[in-house]
Amino acid sequence: MHTPLLRAVGTTTAVYGALVTARPALLARPSGLTTRDGAVPRDTETCLRPLAWRDLAVGLAMATAPEGPALRTATAVRIAADLGDALLLGPTLDRAVRPKVLAVSVGWAALSVLGLCARRAR
């Protein structure tokens, strides 16, 4: 396990989760979840905030969990969430943004898998 990489992934996703919780447009706009004039509907904001809060919570767990089973579990939850986003949210988005959203979701999952499988140089 490469703990520094996992901590960095956790910290990054926690910060992003906090930002999107406060400003859902940070996720809505790149995901194509806006109106034609670029506004984010209130219902969309309402639905995105729990996703962002999940990222905040899981990211904090990865950033602070003791090395070992707790960190592996937090990372497994992060991987499951990212793959769930790709599998469940990706296909529902407009074709124009779908590849980008899938790349980001699968990319974060892959980075977490790499952190679990990699050995830290001594």
Rank of each mutant, 00 (worst) to 15 (best):
M1E: 00
P4D: 04
P4I: 06
L5K: 10
V9D: 02
V9L: 13
T11L: 12
T11E: 01
T13F: 04
A14W: 00
V15W: 07
Y16P: 00
G17Y: 01
A18C: 09
V20P: 04
V20F: 06
V20T: 15
V20E: 06
A22N: 10
R23H: 14
R29S: 14
R29L: 13
P30K: 12
S31G: 14
S31R: 09
S31A: 15
S31K: 03
S31E: 05
G32N: 07
G32C: 08
L33H: 07
T34C: 14
T35C: 10
D37T: 15
A39L: 12
P41H: 13
P41E: 14
R42L: 10
D43G: 09
T44Y: 12
T44K: 05
E45H: 09
T46C: 08
T46A: 13
L48E: 12
R49T: 11
P50D: 11
P50A: 08
A52S: 15
A52N: 09
W53P: 01
D55H: 08
D55L: 06
D55R: 03
L56C: 10
A57G: 09
A57P: 00
V58K: 01
G59V: 03
L60D: 01
A61G: 07
A61K: 05
M62K: 03
A65E: 00
P66D: 11
G68H: 02
G68N: 04
P69Y: 03
A70E: 04
L71Q: 13
L71W: 06
R72E: 07
A74S: 07
A74K: 00
A74H: 02
A76P: 07
V77L: 13
V77H: 01
V77F: 09
R78V: 00
R78L: 05
I79W: 03
A80N: 04
A81N: 06
A81M: 03
D82C: 13
L83P: 03
G84R: 06
G84Q: 10
D85G: 08
A86P: 07
L87H: 00
L87Y: 00
L89V: 15
T92M: 08
L93N: 01
L93K: 03
D94T: 04
R95A: 13
R95E: 12
R95F: 01
V97G: 05
V97M: 12
P99K: 12
P99I: 09
K100Y: 08
V101W: 08
V101T: 09
A103Y: 06
V104G: 02
V106N: 04
V106D: 01
V106G: 03
G107K: 05
W108V: 05
W108Q: 06
W108K: 01
W108T: 08
A110M: 11
A110N: 11
L111V: 15
L111Y: 05
L111H: 00
S112K: 05
V113P: 10
V113L: 14
L114H: 12
G115W: 06
G115F: 02
L116M: 15
L116I: 07
L116P: 10
C117R: 14
R119M: 08
R119F: 07
R120I: 02
R120M: 06
A121M: 08
R122W: 09
R122A: 14
R122L: 11
